[in-house]
Design a protein around this nucleic acid. Sequence first.
DNA 1: AATAGAGCCAACCGCCACTAA
DNA 2: GTTAGTGGCGGTTGGCTCTAT
Length: 243
Amino acid sequence: MENHDVGNLRRGPWLDEEDERLTAIVKALGEKHWDALANESGLRRSGKSCRLRWMNYLRPNLKHGEITYEEEHIILNLHKQWGNKWSRIAKRLPGRTDNEIKNYWRSHLKKKIEAQQGLHSCSEAKQDFSTPECRGSSDEYIGGESKMNEKDGIFGTWSLETPGPSSNMSAFGCSSPYERHISDWMSSCCWQQQHDYNQQTDEIKQHEDCMGMYPCFCQLESEPEEDTMHNVWDLWSPIWETG
DNA sequence: AATAGAGCCAACCGCCACTAA
DNA sequence: GTTAGTGGCGGTTGGCTCTAT
């Protein structure tokens, strides 16, 4: 990749020296007024370029490692709900940027989904979770760790239908014997005894947020222990509640 | 070992929404 | 109400790396 000078502004990859200078100036002036900040820094970069570099690379607490299976599940399900709202999805994945998620989606997930949808179009859409194929032979989500069976793909074998705001587990094509149990539990967590469906505001949002977690439960091979579910809740609720 | 093609990802571009003057 | 400036978002590009031949 080459560096380019357009007018008085530099373009192309950032140098370590530029990163250091940008980091220092952002810490001093804060994450705002990017044009002024760019001028102040002495960097021959546009404010827009500085902002992008900071947001996608230099910002503290960014994760730069591989996307985990749990994160992948969340991306898949939130994308199913929201479409290409990358920044919105990124808010559900602390430490991940919209650009990172977008790239991951394009390079990893899109093809898998298309392949999966191809399979669905050739076979029965409804799945029976009582069969080993539908549960996924070794896909489990126990105690906060999941194992993905490569041949089953990232979805396991759930339906790809988009859930509505009042959907339950069946929206994912789950007909697991544990469906009601988990659904009830999710409801108790997410709906907070909301019965007035004419006032679906914050509760609806909470429910939508929880949908990103559904696949993990869909892959449980056996009825989850109450403690397990609460461990999972403890693990993910801070993420749902932030953003 | 050389080459072509595919995949990945950082960075850029253009559009839109918001805000202040 | 209008306009200019700014920031945020999603789409796209282009170069580097990896893999297959």
